[in-house]
């Protein structure tokens, strides 16, 4: 497998290769791929001694299948991986968003990278779940992977190509995210548009009502669900930006729904 050869080329610890770790992860996960360790790999006891709290993120084999089906048309990973329609994803864990020089990223993700968005298990999980919820103007034309287990499997696979020993398996940036999923009742709050209009006056000091966007993005005419998820992501600290986090932290669920209702239908 590609990941084995890649892993051997990037040994960081004398006794544990990424390939071995992958084996450990595969062995720990339920599924049929338990024999994927390869010859000469250290046995599982040795790995768990080095990383006593190792926990599989997901089913790596299933993740590889998802990668081929969901990602590989645009992204490359592994030895010799190059940027294509999307950037190559070797060592994406721990990488600052939009960090590859000369790749034609969207302005939106460039801005968030400067604000501090870094790819961790938590942020990648959110991004793969719904790219637009995390990075509104992203060019990644991908509808999102809804099933949380599927995302865990996919990220378990992608993580094999981010062989920073310090990151594996439980420390940031690869630690499991604390879930910030929105329960259906939050998404279904019907926004009080008049309250939203009043609250919006706090936004329009910076965000222009007519949608003009230079230096500060437009928030006019966003679909309500996208607006709601974005504001919750700021409130939870998932999206970077000190001003937006500050503003969002004092918004209640009803306030966010009200703002979404107003900005979706703003007419100036």
């Amino acid at each position: 497998m590609t990941m084995n050869s890649l892993g051997r080329s990037r040994l960081r610890l004398p006794t544990v290769s990424v390939a071995a770790l992958a084996a450990a992860l595969v062995l720990a996960a339920p599924g049929p791929a338990a024999s994927d360790g390869g010859e000469g790999a250290p046995d599982i006891a040795q790995v768990t001694t080095t990383f006593p709290r190792a926990v599989a993120l997901g089913d790596v084999e299933h993740g590889r299948e998802l990668w081929e089906f969901e990602c590989a048309a645009c992204h490359e990973m592994g030895r010799g991986a190059e940027d294509g329609i999307g950037p190559q994803l070797n060592r994406v864990f721990g990488r600052r968003a939009a960090a590859i020089a000369d790749f034609p990223y969207s302005d939106s993700i460039i801005r968030m990278g400067r604000d501090g968005l870094t790819w961790t298990y938590r942020t990648l999980d959110a991004y793969i779940e719904n790219p637009y919820a995390l990075v509104s103007g992203t060019r990644m034309s991908y509808p999102g992977l809804e099933d949380a287990d599927d995302r865990a499997d996919l990220l378990a696979f992608i993580r094999l190509y981010s062989d920073q020993p310090a990151d594996i398996p439980e420390a940031e940036p690869t630690a499991r995210r604390v879930e910030v999923e929105l329960p259906p009742e939050v998404l279904e709050i019907r926004g009080d548009r008049e309250w939203g209009e009043y609250l919006a006056s706090e936004c329009t000091t910076c965000h222009q009502r007519d949608g003009a966007a230079a230096g500060i993005p437009s928030i006019t005419h966003w679909p309500e669900d996208r607006f709601v998820v974005a504001m919750h992501a700021y409130r939870e600290g998932l999206r970077p930006h000190s001003t937006m986090q500050n503003i969002a932290r004092r918004l209640e669920d009803e306030d966010i729904a009200a703002l979404a209702a107003y900005f979706a239908t703003i007419d100036d």
Binding site: R111, D115, T205, C206, R209, D210, A214, G215
Partner: peptide, 16 residues
């Protein structure tokens, strides 16, 4: 980016 944001704010507040 913070400087560019400040220009965005300027245009925003004078529009407001």
């Amino acid at each position: 980016q913070t400087f560019e944001e400040s220009i965005g704010w300027y245009n925003g507040i004078v529009a407001d």
